[in-house]
């Protein structure tokens, strides 16, 4: 584990009951980096995120954040340590307004006023819909609230689970632009994404997960226009 490491995972084994999903995952995300975790359905991508954020206890292996172990600690403590997950389901408080959802993001840590300024800077659309109940918003807008709420606590490590899932191409483009801006601002991210083009466009490195193990990876800098090799590695 080098000193530049923000998140370091070694030999992680985890699953649901007798069903072992992760069979020794090791990966590292460096400070200010975006790493895309790619893989077919059922390869264990979301399980990696759920294990990092404490919703799932690993049976083996370690998770370190800035050289401090966060292995197996409960979600609220992982959050306090600085790891914030935006799950695929977004986990928004649907009865509450945009304002209430965002403020809940900084209920434990973070500066509420600073967080709100930053979120509205990234997502100006949300400032116009401050009082709107979240359940009445479109999928794309809900995704903005979910990412915005995560940013309210100024996370050290942001885990994004399929941020483009179920969104229109216009929103996917917008989410991609915002993620690139967040990276420029120094937010470190581990990204799970099915949209290969988007994932490779915004990330610095990619890792391919298959059957609960990292089987390939590399820098996105050297990739040519075609991603056929990666697609073959993921699915074949």
């Amino acid at each position: 584990m080098d000193s530049n490491s923000r998140l370091h995972i070694a030999d992680l084994v985890a699953g649901y009951g007798h069903n072992v999903v992760l069979r020794g995952v090791s990966l590292q995300v460096n400070q200010g980096e975006i790493v895309a975790l790619l893989g077919a359905n059922g390869s264990g991508k979301s399980t990696v995120l759920n294990t990092i954020s404490g919703f799932l206890k690993p049976t083996q292996g370690t998770v370190h954040l800035d050289q401090q172990s966060i292995t197996g600690i409960p979600p609220h403590k992982t959050f306090r340590a600085g790891v914030v997950q935006v799950s695929q389901a977004r986990d928004l408080f649907s009865d509450l307004t945009v304002e209430e959802n965002l403020k809940l993001g900084s209920i434990i840590k973070g500066d509420e006023a600073l967080g709100l300024r930053q979120v509205f800077d990234y997502f100006p659309r949300l400032s116009d819909r401050y009082d709107q109940q979240v359940s009445t918003m479109s999928g794309g807008e809900q995704q903005m609230v979910a990412v915005g709420r995560a940013l309210m606590s100024q996370p050290r490590m942001l885990l994004l689970d399929e941020p483009s899932g179920g969104l229109s191409p216009l929103f996917v483009k917008e989410i991609g632009e915002i993620t690139a801006r967040m990276k420029a601002d120094g937010v470190t991210m581990l990204l799970v994404e099915q949209n290969l083009r988007l994932a490779l466009e915004i990330s610095d490195r990619y890792l391919i997960l298959r059957d609960g193990k990292v089987i390939d990876g590399g820098s996105t800098d050297n990739l040519e226009g075609s991603h056929d090799d990666i697609v073959r590695t993921i699915y074949l």
């Binding site: 919703f55 609220h76 959050f79 799950s87 408080f93 649907s94 209920i107």
Partner: peptide, 22 residues
């Protein structure tokens, strides 16, 4: 903040835990 935490738990316990609420 205590009232807000109650409200968050009422809405979604998992989401509340993910927001750092014990």
């Amino acid at each position: 903040r205590i009232g807000r935490a109650f409200l968050a738990i009422k809405n979604d316990e998992n989401a509340a835990a993910a927001m750092g609420i014990p």
